[in-house]
Design a protein around this nucleic acid. Sequence first.
DNA 1: TGGGTCACG
DNA 2: ACGTACGTGACCCAC
Length: 879
Amino acid sequence: MATEKNLLLIDGSSIAFRAFYAMYNQLDRFTNAQGVHTNAVLTFNNMLDSLVDTMQPDNILVAFDRSGGTFRTKKFSDYKGNRDRAPEELLEQLPYIKRLLDDHGMAHYDLQDWEADDIIGTLAKQAEAAGWTVTIVTGDRDLTQLATDKVTVQVTKKGVGELEAYTPAHIQDKFGLTPKQIIDMKGLMGDTSDNYPGVSKVGEKTALKLLLQFGSIENLYAHLDDLKKSKMKENLINDQANAFLSKDLATIRQDAPLTIGLEDTAYTGPDIDKLRALYTELDMRQALNKLNKQAPQVQPDLSYVVLDDSNLAQVTAISEPISFEIEMLTENYHTAEPVGFFIGTATQTYVSTDVTLLTMPAVKAWLAQKQDIAVFDAKRNIVAGTKLGLVLDHIDFDVLLASYLLNPDQNSNDFGQIAQDHDYQLEFDVDVYGKGAKLKLPEESQLFQHFARKSAAILALKPHLLQDLDDQDQTSLFTQMELPLAKVLARMESTGITLHQATLTQMGAQYAQTIKVLEEKIYAEAGLEFNLNSPKQLGEVLFEKLNLPVIKKTKTGYSTSVEVLEQLRTASPIVQDILDYRAVSKLQSTYVKGLLKAVLPDNKIHTRYLQTLTQTGRLSSVDPNMQNIPARGDGKLIRKAFVPSQPGWQIFSSDYSQIELRVLAHISGDANMQEAFKEDRDIHANTAMKIFKLDSPDQVTPDMRRQAKATNFGIVYGISDFGLAKNIGITRRQAKAFIDGYFEQYPQVHDYMDKMVALAREQGYVETLFHRRRYLAQIHSRNFNQRQFAERTAMNTPIQGSAADIIKVAMIRMQQMLADHHLQSRMLLQVHDELIFEGPEAEMATLAELVPKVMDSAVALAVPLKVESSFGPTWYDAK
DNA sequence: TGGGTCACG
DNA sequence: ACGTACGTGACCCAC
């Protein structure tokens, strides 16, 4: 029985092409681990989703062109003859697009000798005859000729984001033509993209005029005599054959010998498991997330036991490995309240919202000695545990840390995401708890179910991740470095550093004065009041009102950065005032106000170190960032506010000197550079002698040393002559000479650079001394910038990352050393190559002896590690 | 939410 | 012919 159905016909080839180019600039951002591009698959997929959403089709068919000729090429051998072969990056995606369609339950079809257009035309006709409604989606306006009362043609606009609906009425409005007359128009105009000629000099305007008058090509030629003598008439006569040929070529056939029928186009709906597998294979994260949200994998409810005073003995009787978590809903665990906990085994999960159960003597003692505790985010749990007075000394597995080491890109702090990255389905915290204003504790049963699933996920992922770590030679990095470090960091964070608030408040009052004076002065100089903090408004004032020369532009307007302003300093007195204003207001908003906002009731700042964020293995620091406290200029005074927590104590600081260059000397094996360090020479002066070809250190001027220093830095960053030139204000030619000289003097450094890039190309990743890995997918990019960036990263990451490894080892040993010597002193902060402590004045001499010892012996390199120390009553003085 | 700016190693 | 130094986080404005 024929019911009226809704048929969606998609011009697959045309949409794939548009999808590919719509995201062409992002081409290399979207590849899977095997390097297969996915930008077209992704866009195509999004489009399918939105079409199904808006149209609710009963039937779908996606038509594709076949490679090789068609009946049109037989009629006209140049048909589409000007087309380049589609790029490889698109071709490789076509099989995936077809798989995508299969998995979505959508039919697709192609036919030897026929184009997608003809397949669509034929089915549209059949569907219309059956009384169906048809929507055609294409990027090609030729198909609008198929529009009827029952057939709407949706043509993509602006990439693929928008569709324009061509109904007969819309075509009438737009061109004054019927859909069929579109064919006549093409016949007269020809089509450059399909490479057929039409009539010379006839474009859209002329074609429309002729068709309004004559209705069709046939009628036009029947009444050609009615036209006055003109060049156009001559062209029409000369190109008559072309006009008819072109019309024929432009006509979409509706009688293709299809081997399928309407009944084969039924939309059967997606196969979720297959789609999930495909998205996973292609690393289509966003699609995977959406899918999992729409169709969460049906998981049977897991059992759990709600703990209370009466059944705690069940927990303390557990002797097998466990999962563990103290759950908090907000990111900052220093301020968060725990909302519950779980303890899980392979067979059962024990849950409660009452964390005081953990502090019951029996449980506490059991936890303290418990081995084989596995968690998601060790540091978070240790800090939360510490607040409850718990000792969690034997956390021996952390899903988050393991995942990060396996691939630093996989560092989401949402367990659901991490689980998904490892092909394990787990609800995202965001979906269970909400976020922002909608953050709230779910019903108890839902909370406990989530706990049970997390527990299961931890225990299920553990063996796989351990195996993967072993395969990547990272077991020791995991168990000997990152896990012990989590504990050390937890201790540092929990300890916190004392902030003398009055010092900052007083500085703040001073700054406020200065800011006010500068503001008024600047407004007077500008002749108007405006928002000084708005680069946009400032740009308008400087470059439009005051007509200062434009030095540099940004994406959005004029650049007003320091480099620009410094060049304009002499052009107007307002510039210096703005520079001063910027400096003071930065100190005021970020450091005075920002730091005061972060003080907790114990008068301390408790930063959080992100252990699983950076791509190189460094730590980062947030809430507040304690790794970018001003160290130079006036801002350095901010450091006076950081004081010891007890009277009679001091701040002590040690830092590695030139650790990255020493690491470079070691891993490159460069004899000249190693010699400089072994003899404890001033490395920048040494480099200056080399690149300026001097005979003695006495000849090195301060400026030469400065330039050599910049060159040393440049080398570490994966240098370019342009970058170096810009940085130290020399010509590109000079910069190139420096670099060439550098590599001549340090030839093995040059070899190292080449080797790292080659290695990255070969294996897709580079490694640090301790086997920390960074994948560089873009190393094969066709995009020059992205590829060059990957190459620089390949050179820099082993250097920066190995330096990060070294200080991490030192920190672990430092904690041990402090304990072994029963020192009251404690480690407070890490700033990449620097460790900051506080302790009784009486211990300063001991620290001065022991801290550098621990740091310089953390690893044995081919060159010595040098450490410098100092101490004083505030952080400012410890330098 | 993204961009500009600027603080750190 | 291209645009360019490596790794971070916070604040502010504008959309």
